[in-house]
């Protein structure tokens, strides 16, 4: 059976770019859409969850053991689930929220959940690394807890936070490559359908090259801003 495919593929010769280019454009758009939606929604939810995780820790601004333990547990449970399994496991929830379990939006939904959870941990860890003395200084001036969180703490941790988000960006791009599993499209789907299955490695490499350029661009941008914000 396989032999048959190989023979057929090599027989077709060079790649038909005239046919593939519109499909590639569409795949790039789908990847950008999935990544932007996921980072946009999941990144914000994750930031808020991360702030809750950080500030409810013992001896922090809004110390609350119950909230911390529950959220910490939820994050620990969801985070290690491989995305491909999570994607299929929450199918009923995806249907009830998005209305369907196939297509790009159906892929974005589980991506947002995983991204929120991962972001919350990254945010929490970066905030834990900030000097508690800075919070103490703000509090000693009569700065309210909320104001301390948003006008002192976040600006102080902004540089590592930006790098954390760049890291997430790579993880989300990675997740988006699995969207093809549920007909979500994107570059991963493109590489599998027209590269791997057609035994046309060039197509796969083109898809990879686009992803590398895309990720590098974001990483370099993040490095630039993170460095500027360090003031050292």
């Amino acid at each position: 059976m396989f032999e048959h495919i190989i023979i057929e593929s090599t027989a077709t010769g060079s790649t038909n770019w005239e046919y593939l280019t519109p499909l590639l454009n569409r795949a790039v758009f789908e990847t950008l859409y999935m990544v932007a939606m996921t980072i946009g929604i999941g990144g914000v939810i994750g930031l808020l969850l991360g702030l809750v995780l950080y500030s409810t820790r013992p001896s922090n601004l809004f110390q609350n053991t119950v909230v911390y333990r529950v959220l910490d547990f939820v994050v620990n449970v969801i985070r290690p689930i491989p995305f491909i399994i999570f994607l299929t496991a929450i199918r009923p929830l995806t249907i009830s929220v998005i209305g369907t379990s196939i297509g790009t939006d159906a892929a974005v939904f589980p991506m947002v959940i995983i991204c929120s959870v991962a972001t919350s941990r990254i945010v929490e860890q970066n905030l834990v690394g900030t000097d508690p003395g800075i919070i103490e200084a703000a509090r000693s001036m009569g700065c309210s807890r909320m104001r301390t969180l948003f006008t002192v703490l976040i600006p102080e941790a902004l540089s590592p936070l930006i790098l954390g988000y760049a890291f997430l960006f790579v993880a989300v791009t990675d997740m988006s490559a699995m969207a093809g599993m549920i007909a979500g499209g994107g570059l991963g789907d493109f590489a599998i359908s027209y590269g791997y299955r057609q035994m046309d490695d060039v197509v796969t490499w083109v898809a990879i090259a686009i992803i590398i350029v895309f990720v590098q661009l974001v990483q370099q941008l993040a490095n630039f801003f993170a460095k500027r914000l360090l003031h050292k």
């Binding site: 000097d131 800075i134 200084a137 000693s140 002192v152 102080e156 914000l229």
Partner: peptide, 15 residues
């Protein structure tokens, strides 16, 4: 606001 505080490790806002 009536009580200022100064710290050993300064606790300045680095950002």
């Amino acid at each position: 606001a009536e009580i200022g505080m100064v710290f050993q490790l300064f606790n300045l806002f680095n950002a």
